[in-house]
Simulated scan of single mutants.
Amino acid sequence: MSYRSTVSRQPEALADSLAAAQAELAGLDLAPLGTGLVAVTGVGASSAAAVVVAAELQRRGRRAFAVRSGEMMAGHDLADIVLALSHRGRSVETVEALRKLPRAKSLAITNDSESPLAEAASFHVRLANGGDATPSSTGYTATLLVAGLAVDGIQGASGADWAGLPAQAAALLAGAAEKMPRLAQLFADRRAIDCVGAGASIGTADGASLLIREAARIPASGYETRHYLHGPMESMDETTGVVLFGDTREIELAHNLEEIGVPVLLVTSRQDIGDAGKRTVIHVPEAENLILRGILDIFAAQLLAAELSDAADLTDVQFRYKQTDTKILAA
């Protein structure tokens, strides 16, 4: 299945995952996950998603943090609760993280209820996004959606319009697609691309940088906004590009970068800023729920990665480096 085709399937994949997860959650009593310190974990794109989910838990008043699963494999008693994210549920590090913390209550979110991660967890909720491609598109957003529903199940309803998400996804993808010819020209032949955001958007920036690395093989990195101001941005110039996610300091940062000739994509809910010079703006709806906002923000990055992949003649090219020790094979 091609990358572009899975991105275009986002509305359907989100609708299917919404229905499946709501049905499963209706039959689960998540009260045991209601107190204690929460670790949200995953590897790769799931690690980026974990940052978004942990930020929403913090916003809701929970003590929570994101941690890569490889950092939990030593078995240190880091948390009372573990939310484990893995699309297929076969990531060695994430499964091992749960196995090394048998006293912690855990919730796994995967697309396979018989996966090793599902079997290792106290609770499991299934995705229903269908097939995914490399880099991950529907798997990433479905993971966030189901995590958002699970957080609501643990903490109480947040008021997020999950039912309206598939229609929002369709509208945002259509709007972002109109900006892609401009972005393809401005971001052509970049030697490096930085992705930047604050709070939950640190995870979105990390996920976006991974998309660009995987799809277009362009060196890309994710940074927290305020940290980026303290030196990392100094290497950026007219031969690079920056993708910004946010509504506050990111606006001024977009101006700073454009002034020195850096092409910028700004994904923001602010309506008082638009395209100018080398700055391209994609507007998204405001969302108090940080997981919902993380889903809305990533669509632009997915489409940009597809554009850069096409420009590099890498459309749907598979990974060059084959790993033999990162997935638990099916029996």
Results as ranks from 00 to 15, higher is better:
E56W: 02
I81H: 04
S47C: 10
R60C: 11
A167W: 07
T315L: 13
I298V: 15
Q318Y: 07
A147E: 01
V43Y: 00
A177R: 12
I295S: 01
L101C: 06
C195G: 04
G203T: 08
R126N: 11
H124F: 13
A15I: 07
A216R: 04
F245Q: 04
L25Q: 05
R320Y: 05
A84E: 05
V196G: 02
G261K: 08
L296Y: 10
L101K: 03
I154L: 02
V40Q: 03
A21F: 14
R126S: 15
P11R: 07
A54H: 07
T248E: 15
A198T: 11
A55T: 04
D29Q: 10
A45I: 01
S137A: 15
R279S: 04
A26D: 13
D316W: 09
N111H: 12
K278E: 13
L183G: 09
R279G: 03
D152S: 12
G70K: 09
R4D: 08
A66C: 13
E56D: 15
N111K: 07
D152G: 12
F187M: 02
S269V: 02
D132T: 14
S158W: 11
G61L: 09
Q22E: 14
T324S: 10
G139R: 00
S136H: 13
T268Q: 06
A26S: 15
E178T: 14
V92P: 07
A215G: 08
A120N: 11
M1Q: 10
V284Y: 00
I295A: 00
V317A: 13
Q185C: 00
E307H: 10
Y223E: 05
D275P: 03
A331D: 14
Q10A: 13
A20Q: 13
D112N: 15
Q318M: 12
A23D: 11
V242T: 11
V281D: 07
D275C: 06
T280W: 06
R213L: 14
D237Y: 08
E258G: 10
D297C: 12
V52Q: 02
R217Q: 15
R279D: 01
A45V: 08
V267S: 04
A167V: 13
A20N: 09
G294M: 12
F245D: 06
I218S: 05
E71D: 15
S46M: 07
G175Y: 07
D132W: 05
I251T: 04
R249Y: 12
A170G: 14
D161Y: 10
